[in-house]
Design a protein around this nucleic acid. Sequence first.
DNA 1: ATATGATACGTTATAATATTACATTAATAA
DNA 2: TTATTAATGTAATATTATAACGTATCATAT
Lengths: 168, 168
Amino acid sequence: MLTNSRLVHQFHDHDRCINAALASAYSLCAEKNARMTAIRESVLRLLWQSHQPLGAYQLQDQLSRLLNKPVAPATIYRAVDFLLGLGLIHRIASLNAFISCPFPNSEHSNLFMICTDCGSVAEVAHNTVNGLLQTICDKANFTLQSQSLELFGQCPQCSSDGEDSSHG
Amino acid sequence: MLTNSRLVHQFHDHDRCINAALASAYSLCAEKNARMTAIRESVLRLLWQSHQPLGAYQLQDQLSRLLNKPVAPATIYRAVDFLLGLGLIHRIASLNAFISCPFPNSEHSNLFMICTDCGSVAEVAHNTVNGLLQTICDKANFTLQSQSLELFGQCPQCSSDGEDSSHG
DNA sequence: ATATGATACGTTATAATATTACATTAATAA
DNA sequence: TTATTAATGTAATATTATAACGTATCATAT
Ligand SMILES: [Zn+2]
Ligand SMILES: [Zn+2]
Ligand SMILES: [Zn+2]
Ligand SMILES: [Zn+2]
């Protein structure tokens, strides 16, 4: 199992997250002969600001502020498509939003734990889950190609915030 | 495990699906003191035309044709919200579409197998999957509230259509 | 039966998300 | 250089979803 759950839900040195992500991104581009342009890197950095997803139009606003000039939706969707293609980010279907991938190198299919209170999203790559889903599909003669697994609830932080604290 | 996979992917008496669904719907409404109005029933029937999901604007077109008068998006979204609330239908986030629920009576959390070729969607309620996800969330101290599990690939029909038939 | 309040619906406008098409520029290859 | 491909600029439009407010219908109590 591979997850960034601890990182997401605890105070941590986020610059390390960013640096690791950028390094991965550049090495992946080198490997696949893909071009990490200024816009694409900016969008990736914006998505790495935090462990929360951003929608296309939030990215538009932020990039436009960053570049100090108007940016069209197409620009965002292009950058996002590029990053999705390399597996550097993921799309959260239920949120119409995009999130940076904490382990873009590994082959994995993704499971997201989405906090409906604070908006944080942790990613989990879990072989047992994936194996089980594969088995289910096999039994149904369904040829599994890809998946979107999104779990909603409260992250550790938000769970404990909402706890009954009368027992102190 | 509970699934309508066989039904969805094989020729079957679909009128039975429809009748069972309508009966469930009415008994659920009775139980919960909810009103199954004409519009709501129409939308439910439209979603039961097949085992494929429909988008809000497809429903709008079809309902408007059915009633022979214009129907506004709000009308559709209201009906859909009502049906979602009763668990009579589900929303497929990755498709922005709605699908009839084959077993609305049972408490279940849903897993969908979506055929990217023919568009059919089968639903699976699987205790082992749900238990496993619950365990994962417990370990991460994540309070699981709900989930959206969507699998993409080829259904049995479409898989065999695409098979290499040279070995015969 | 009639008044009351709650629910559902009609209607219009608008917000939010995503794609298309085509012109222009920049990078790479021949 | 020139040809070719890839990326971006720009404008328009398509698709999905919600908001606001008035009207009609239904349930219930008097
Ligand atoms: Zn971090
Ligand atoms: Zn949280
Ligand atoms: Zn059927
Ligand atoms: Zn269901």
